[in-house]
Amino acid sequence: MKVVRDRLVALGFGKYARADKIVALIPIEENRGSGRRTLVYVEGVDEPLVAGRTEATILRDMVGAESGALELLKELQAQIGQVRPLLKSSIRSEAGLDLDRLSRRISELTGE
């Protein structure tokens, strides 16, 4: 992935950072909640910023939707959502393809 230079990335609650100045994203595991999702380390700032968005969402905004990949993933997820459970089970048994796991992975990647 390549970070888009000079792009402002929303961190939530009115906080923004330049994508090319963000050096680390660390998910908050303890005391996590609304408004406390990710620690964002920014070049030139001594203390990390507390972001109200997940690291996956911030990262997605840092790199942008490359070649429509994000839209393709969302479309694939919508199509998977239309497959009935019995057919999903059959596909998993016959082809070893777990559509529900794939859909969860897409959610993780898109931050939705």
Rank of each mutant, 00 (worst) to 15 (best):
K2S: 09
K2L: 03
V3D: 15
V4R: 02
V4L: 08
R5N: 04
R5P: 09
D6I: 01
D6Y: 09
R7E: 00
A10D: 14
A10K: 12
A10M: 06
A10Y: 12
G12P: 09
F13C: 12
G14S: 09
Y16L: 03
Y16W: 12
D20I: 10
D20G: 12
K21Y: 08
I22K: 04
I22W: 06
A24F: 04
L25W: 03
L25A: 01
L25T: 01
I26N: 14
I26C: 06
I26G: 05
I28F: 11
I28R: 04
E30R: 10
E30N: 05
N31Y: 14
R32G: 06
R32Q: 01
G33M: 12
G33N: 03
S34M: 01
S34E: 14
R36L: 00
R36W: 00
L39Y: 13
L39I: 00
Y41P: 02
G44W: 01
V45T: 10
D46A: 15
D46V: 12
P48M: 07
V50H: 04
A51F: 02
T54C: 00
E55Q: 08
E55S: 10
E55L: 03
A56P: 06
T57P: 00
I58Q: 07
I58E: 09
L59C: 09
R60I: 02
D61R: 09
D61F: 05
A65V: 10
E66Y: 07
E66A: 14
G68A: 06
G68R: 13
G68F: 11
A69I: 05
E71K: 10
E71Q: 06
L72T: 14
L72D: 13
L73D: 11
K74D: 14
K74A: 02
K74W: 15
E75L: 06
L76N: 11
L76Y: 02
Q77L: 02
A78E: 13
Q79P: 00
Q79N: 08
G81M: 00
G81F: 03
G81Q: 11
Q82V: 12
V83M: 08
R84H: 06
R84G: 02
P85E: 13
P85H: 11
L86I: 01
L86Q: 11
K88G: 02
S89P: 01
S89H: 09
S89E: 15
S90T: 15
I91G: 03
I91Q: 08
A95H: 06
G96V: 02
D98S: 11
D98L: 03
D98V: 06
D100N: 14
D100H: 03
D100I: 15
D100S: 15
L102H: 08
R104H: 13
R105A: 10
R105C: 00
I106A: 03
I106G: 04
S107A: 15
S107C: 13
L109V: 12
L109P: 03
E112C: 02
E112P: 13
E112A: 07
